[in-house]
Amino acid sequence: MSNQDYYVPHGTYWPIIGSIGVSTLFVGFANQMHGVEWGGSVMGLGMAIIVFMLFGWLGTVVNESVNGMYNKQVDKSFRWGMSWFIFSEVMFFAAFFGALFYARILSVPWLGGADNNMFSGATEALETSKYIWEGFQATWPLINTPGAVGQSGVEFSSGFKLVDTWGLPALNTGLLLTSGVTLTYAHHALRKGHRNALVFWMLATIALGAAFLGFQIAEYGHAYHDGLKLTSGIYGSTFYLLTGFHGFHVTIGVIMLTVILYRIQKGHFDSDNHFAFEGVAWYWHFVDVVWLGLFVFVYWI
């Protein structure tokens, strides 16, 4: 580390560009959902601005880092920043896992007439539920929704066929876990300074991640074909939002791994100094663990 000073950057345009990009994306998205013609193109424009901002901003940071403008303390700020960003991600997923558990353990049984007062000692289904949705069976996965049409007029896609756990989900879990193993080998190679092995294992990790995404899309295709849709009531809602946001994070992870591979080729890292690699590696392990949680709680128990 070349200098002892804490680097305080001079003025920057990237944040305001980012704000314009994100706002454009959201305004476009909202209009798109309301059926406005220009919505989609404005969304695309916003996305392009965001990509431009990310390249510019992160490019500046990488340049500053390579030119030795950051000391150990700046490095530590990035480490703290990254770790608490990850914590916010954990809490975001926690909201959706919370919704899954709440529905499974509490609200679906209540819809089926279960008593919610443990002091009453009731064992039979409450009478009231029979009058509201006659014949509703509280099961998990909830394949038949209590009503056929939602409050806002959505026709629920009930009676769907569930995704076979032994098929794509198991394969995908295997792929993602293998990518975790290859990434660990890459990490090892980086720490030992074995460049060729590092590049090989990074390539393998990226390929496995991309394969996961491909199979995930295929799984969605099958599920939609079998009637499991976003409109399949609470099961479809939790299934798609959890796996969807996970897939979104895998996509980001694959992009970040690719950038790291590029930076490896450029010789930005050495065996002692590779925070960017560590950050992305941790992110990938985190995304991997989220999937494991999904696999266990959505597909198994």
Binding site: M33, A95, F96, A99, Y102, A103, L106, S107, V108, W110, L111, L142, T145, P146, G147, V149, G150, Q151, S152, V154, F156, K229, L230, T231, G233, I234, Y235, G236, S237, T238, Y240, L241
Partner: peptide
């Protein structure tokens, strides 16, 4: 979840679809 309930037909907060 509100956004998807409003625009994409999910049922997080709609008891008719098993939500709450």
């Amino acid at each position: 979840m509100m956004l998807t309930d409003r625009n994409f037909g999910t049922a997080f907060f709609d008891a008719t679809g098993g939500g709450d």
